[in-house]
Design a protein around this nucleic acid. Structure first.
Lengths: 219, 219
DNA sequence: ACAGAACCGTACCGTACGGTACGATCTTGT
DNA sequence: ACAAGATCGTACCGTACGGTACGGTTCTGT
């Protein structure tokens, strides 16, 4: 269970700079461009330091994921007063953020990296990516859904199932198609409309109608 | 537009056997295990033949995708009489098939391969995979939805959007998590329940209620 | 039967990568 | 100021891969 990167102070500033450079290389040229010699040259460090800090190449990849995850920490909103409009707006925000994150260059590059390594037996990169990246998103959404349920705005028998349905309504098949590099799929200008539609559909499935209020009043 | 593999008779039986062996290697050890020398040894052929048949390694990968896609041809049901029960059953079948295909070893291996190559600039593998694999599925679902709409069983403003929603309801985030190799995600015994639930939700969103019939009578 | 093509097995080449070693340089604690 | 450790740049090693070449063998058309 100990992957060696649990301590948020694991990395010195110098190491973080090197990891950022590694991410940069990964973005520009994919996994093939991320060689130890290339990284050492680009980051002005020695290969010896790389191996001292990260052990081996797999350790470097894991460190990159941990490093990137440590940069984007999702903040959970405090318990403000939650009416239907605010709740729906929060869901739409979540949907937009989710599409933005999944469609981002860094996320796509790291997911491609982890997926490409997933065939090898002992690769923990995929688990690490889910653990470090997805669980934060899941937490935020779970808390949001739970708050909405407690306020009587939505109802569901199983929160996880409701969340996964919301996820599916938002992301559809976009993530895999973006990962595959399909042309014309990454269109951030369409995210807001997709987010609105997904949340609308989510309310149809899980919304609690009170006095004929359908929850679409903020469109 | 011409990828060189349009003709279904492109590959001789010998070549198809070699491509099957290549798939086998890919399944067992991922992309790293699929080397020209290893394939030549495993398939009892010469490297020279590999390069003669497929040009280079990328050509081999593309040929593998084309070969695999040529094996699974989705059949479109003829125009049988379609009542609500049959329509719903067809949707559930589609959902089950989709989960089964996406969670299959070959599909996962090829998708991992294409995604891993997606970072490189000139890689057409992703497009090829979508073109050869997904479009058949899309066609089948599109025809099914259109038939249901013409019979007045469902209604939608945009067929593509409705289809993508159905896709999202069925697949949720399972595909990416399977691609990442997350433990405990591939559970074929759960597919039927997931398929039923997704189709139920799809009918809530797009079903046409007649005389208080909600379309959930076959559960 | 025979010629020509296709094919197999193996050897070979150049390259590029992961990982290690080492002297030179820089930082840091006292 | 000075010593000890950290880091840099470079060189080096072994290996493995993509791709090519070639002699021997098998298939195929006539």
């Amino acid at each position: 269970m100990d992957d060696g990167f649990d301590d948020p102070h694991s990395f010195t500033p110098r190491q973080r700079a090197v990891l950022d450079q590694a991410l940069q290389l990964l973005l520009e040229g994919g996994e093939r461009a991320l060689t130890t010699a290339g990284l050492a040259r680009a980051a002005n460090c020695s290969k010896e330091s790389l191996y001292k800090w990260f052990g081996d190449r797999d350790g470097l990849l894991a460190a990159m994921i941990a490093h990137q995850a440590s940069k984007v920490r999702a903040q959970i909103d405090s318990g403000e007063r939650l009416d239907l409009g605010r709740f729906r707006a929060h869901l739409v925000d979540f949907a937009n953020d989710l599409l933005q994150v999944l469609g981002g260059d860094v996320s796509l590059a790291l997911n491609r990296l982890a997926i490409g390594q997933a065939s090898r037996e002992g690769s923990r990169l995929g688990a690490l990516l889910i653990e470090r990246g997805r669980h934060g998103i899941d937490k935020r959404a779970g808390a949001l859904l739970e708050a909405g349920r407690q306020r009587g705005l939505i109802a569901y028998p199983d929160r996880d199932s409701a969340y996964h349905t919301l996820y599916g309504l938002i992301v559809r098949d976009l993530h895999v198609r973006m990962l595959l590099g399909e042309a014309g799929v990454r269109r951030p200008e369409h995210y807001p409309a997709l987010a609105e539609e997904a949340v609308d559909q989510f309310f149809v499935l899980f919304g609690v109608r009170k006095n004929e209020t359908t929850g679409r009043d903020s469109v």
